[in-house]
Design a protein around this nucleic acid. Structure first.
Length: 503
DNA sequence: AGACGGACTTGAACACATGCTC
DNA sequence: GAGCATGTGTTCAAGTCCGTCT
């Protein structure tokens, strides 16, 4: 890890050293007292060399390794469930490592210990062939619980949380759950207007608790914020969601850039990804926020009378199965559907249609604040594409000139052969222009996508039936939208969806 | 009511494979 | 056919939400 930025951080180094000392013998403890005086370069070079060696292996050796991996997958990567062979999502145990939290994580650098068979709970049917532990070992426990979906579990030592071995997303079990999730979101569609009306009424409630709940729900609905559970301080990075917003995370502007009642959000959300947004809100919301912030100081909860169990309990009463996260799914899917409707031009070419799809997808990703680090090679690859586009333009000019000359010649001496030449030159111009258009579309798409990750929403928030129906309607190949993984995961939707599907 | 453990989904980063260009 | 950019698959951390216990 030495060439990673992590290892320069004070917390990381301290945590590592504390945990390392726990592993030392008495003599080692006497000698090794200061991490800054430890020189790991020899080990570092050794492993660097190993990696290099691996990279430089011959084709045959690489093929052999690949085959061995496939054999491993074949033997351990599947299980039998209800007489079906199902792929396991993660069949390999997590190896020991130094814990890498995200953001400003208080536990970064701690030693994540090796998991032994003695740590593992196996969950399988009573009458099934129970997996053998490695020789000389035994499992922590073998149980037969058919109310849960995991096959094996262990407790991880850094956070003390349980980790699981579970089925792949393409399994029947996961597919059914996925379908249920979208069905609940679709159900919300029929309740949304009434729920909105209710929370607007509640803006004026005389009970502070109810007002806070209403404003929080307004944010969750309008901005697709996460619920925001409470977190234990010092156990992980300081991040928040809607219910856990603190007064320092918002600023109120009675007027800003010609708009009234603007709220500026600035906080770290899940994975310490920054959420920054300036939104005009309804007057009642604005007034309430002013009220909630009265007599509070930095560090105080904005919604001090509210938490996620309270909010979810309320939502349950409005619609069965409704929780805060359903709004994210609902708003993401409905936004995709609306955007597709708006952006798809029946006349445009297939590549242009795909650009429209990506733009609709992008609108959702922006709503959900799904970001990514710009690819390291972004500037370079963009410049490459630009120069290719320029070259293509040159090519078109040239092709046009040739066409003109051919036409002229054909006019002068009207021969069969020359007419054919004109035709082929015409086609060449057309072809090159199409190529240029495709490149320009690609450039636009890539530029707009620089810091936005589409995959998360595609995989977790967008009802696949919307996309399948759209592809069918416009005869766009599904593989242009969904790669193999997605098609696999959404097999349930691909099977059942007709062109007229409406979310 | 609140703490807590447990199960499951969501998320960005990273590693690896593939396919394209020169 | 090598070298590299891009797309795909893997990893594992970090959320949500539920049920149980006190």
């Amino acid at each position: 890890m030495l060439d990673h930025e992590y290892t320069t951080k004070e917390i990381f180094r301290n945590n590592f050293f504390v945990d390392w000392r726990k592993e030392m013998t008495l003599e080692e403890k006497m000698v090794i007292t200061d991490l800054d005086k430890c020189d790991f370069t020899e080990m570092f070079t050794y492993y660097k060399g190993k990696m290099e060696e691996k990279k430089n292996k011959s084709k045959e050796d690489k093929l052999k390794i690949k085959e061995e991996n496939e054999k491993l997958l074949e033997e351990y990567g599947y299980c039998a469930m209800d007489h079906h062979r199902e792929k396991i999502g993660n069949f390999k145990i997590e190896p020991p490592a130094l814990f890498r939290g995200r953001g400003d994580h208080p536990k970064q650098g701690m030693l994540k210990k090796r998991i032994l068979p003695e740590d593992i709970i196996i969950n399988c049917s009573k009458d099934s062939k129970i997996p053998e532990p490695p020789p000389g070992h035994k499992w922590k426990e073998v149980r037969h619980d058919n109310t849960v979906t995991w096959l094996a579990s262990w407790t991880e030592n850094v956070q003390g949380s349980v980790k699981y071995i579970m089925l792949n997303a393409n399994s029947k079990l996961k597919g059914e759950k996925d379908w249920e999730k979208y069905e609940i979101a679709r159900k919300l569609k029929h309740h949304a207007e009434k729920i909105r009306k209710t929370y607007r009424e509640n803006f004026k409630s005389k009970e502070m608790k109810v007002r806070q709940r209403a404003v929080a729900l307004y944010f969750i609905d309008k901005l697709a914020l996460r619920a925001g559970n409470e977190k234990e301080e010092g156990e992980s990075a300081d991040t928040v969601g809607c219910c856990s917003l603190r007064v320092e995370h918002i600023k109120l502007y009675p007027e800003l850039d010609g708009e009234k009642h603007v709220v500026e959000f600035d906080f770290l959300g899940k994975d310490s990804i920054r959420y920054y947004n300036k939104v005009p809100v309804e007057k009642q919301v604005f007034k309430n926020l002013q009220l909630f912030m009265e007599n509070k100081e930095e560090g105080d909860d904005l919604f001090d009378r509210l938490n996620t169990p309270l909010l979810n309990k309320h939502l349950q009463s409005l619609m069965e199965g409704l929780t805060a996260k359903v709004f994210r799914t609902y708003n993401a899917s409905i936004t995709l559907q609306q955007q597709l409707q708006e952006l798809t031009d029946p006349e445009e070419s297939i590549p242009a249609k795909i650009l429209s799809y990506n733009r609709a997808n992008r609108a959702v990703a922006i709503l959900c604040n799904h970001q990514r680090a710009p690819p390291k090679t972004f500037d370079q690859s963009m410049a490459n594409l630009k120069s290719k586009i320029d070259a293509k333009k040159e090519q078109i000019l040239l092709a046009k000139k040739e066409l003109k000359e051919a036409k002229k010649e054909a006019k002068e001496k009207d021969s069969e052969k020359l007419n054919k030449v004109v035709e082929s030159k015409k086609r060449a111009v057309q072809r090159t222009e199409e190529q240029l258009m495709r490149m320009e579309v690609q450039a636009t798409d890539r530029e707009e996508n620089k810091q936005i990750a589409l995959s998360t929403s595609k995989l977790n928030y967008l009802d696949p039936r919307i996309s399948v129906a759209w592809c069918k309607k416009w005869t766009v190949g599904l593989e242009k939208i969904y790669n193999k993984t997605y098609r696999d995961k959404f097999a349930w939707a691909i099977d059942m969806t007709e062109t007229d599907f409406i979310f």
